[in-house]
Computed example of a mutant assay.
Amino acid sequence: MIKRLLWVSMFFLMPFLVYGQDEGVFWKITGNGLREPSYLFGTIHLICMEDYHLSDEVVKKIQKADALILEVDMDDPWLALSMMAKMHNEGGEEITDYLTEEEYQETRRLLKERTGTDIEMLKSMRPLMLMSLIYPSLLECETKAYENELLKHAKEKNKEIYGLESIDEQLSIFDRIPLEEQYRSFYEYTGNLEKGKKEFRRLIETYKNEEIALLVKMVSESPEYRDYQDILLDQRNRNWIRPMREFMEKGSVFFAVGAGHLGGKSGIIQLLKSEGYELKRIPTGRPSVANSHSDPPIN
């Protein structure tokens, strides 16, 4: 449950900006005085097992690196406690403070039908955490998380594990978005889960094709987060550059962050280039999915 909550938090922190850039999810970082190359890998935080692919080249680079750097340190023994402490609204606000009785009962019924969970006792749970209840029925498949698999490979070779931000920092980002908007988005999402399924399928196909610009464009069309690009993306990317530089100056490291963080003028690739680093794309060996970009729009 805790790991599912973490995947969902990272999924909703994907970026929302379109900008011309190189495509690709796996990159070699050199230059700017580095003694050894480091690597940058873009993930999708939840994916169906049948769509999961991790090339031997990626695994080899993880196992050769000195450390694995994720968005948050998933090897932290205090991670579960930190997540539990953030499950409910700090001020005691409840979903019924923001939805009408009719809207609440409709949402409660839909969740009970699709997930078997009655949210009557979870009224003060944060919208992000409530979303985690939906995902098993939304995906309708056995899932894998890239971060979890990368972590396994790193630990097999006794590599150090670090994070670019703490879980408290990551979850506190949502405190800057009004609860009313978050609960309203949650209500609208639960009311149209079929649309959510189609959108997620397109997202996966786009990731498999490593079409970063299209992936970002798709997420950018989400109206509930359109006004929070700087909070959810730009500031976080800029904050990550200094620790990334410090890690790379110590040795060869392997960074793994959400794929959407790579693109855009405020994306990791462009920010690292502006710092003087050279980035070269490495093929992942995944067969492309033909015509994923030609899918009809979802209404």
Rank of each mutant, 00 (worst) to 15 (best):
Y225R: 08
Y228H: 15
S220G: 12
M218L: 14
I231G: 00
L214Y: 02
D227S: 12
R236E: 06
R245A: 10
R245I: 15
A213F: 01
R242G: 06
W240L: 13
R245H: 10
S220V: 14
L233C: 06
V219R: 00
P223D: 09
Y225S: 06
D234R: 07
K217D: 02
D234F: 10
R236K: 02
W240Y: 14
N239R: 15
Q229G: 03
D230K: 01
E221H: 07
D230G: 01
R236L: 03
Y225T: 11
I212E: 05
M218R: 09
M244E: 13
D234N: 09
R236D: 00
N239H: 10
E221F: 08
R226W: 05
I241W: 13
P223V: 08
R245L: 13
P223Y: 08
V216K: 11
Q229W: 06
P223G: 05
V216Y: 10
V216N: 11
M244Q: 13
R226P: 00
Y225C: 05
L215D: 00
Y228I: 12
D227F: 08
A213H: 06
L214G: 01
P243S: 09
P223E: 08
R242W: 12
I212G: 06
Q235V: 07
D230V: 02
Y228D: 10
L233P: 00
Y228C: 07
L232Q: 04
I212N: 09
L214K: 04
P223N: 05
Q235N: 03
Y228L: 11
D234C: 07
V216H: 10
L233V: 02
D230I: 06
D234T: 15
D234I: 15
I231M: 04
E224F: 09
V219D: 02
A213S: 12
S222Y: 14
N239F: 11
Q235L: 06
N239W: 10
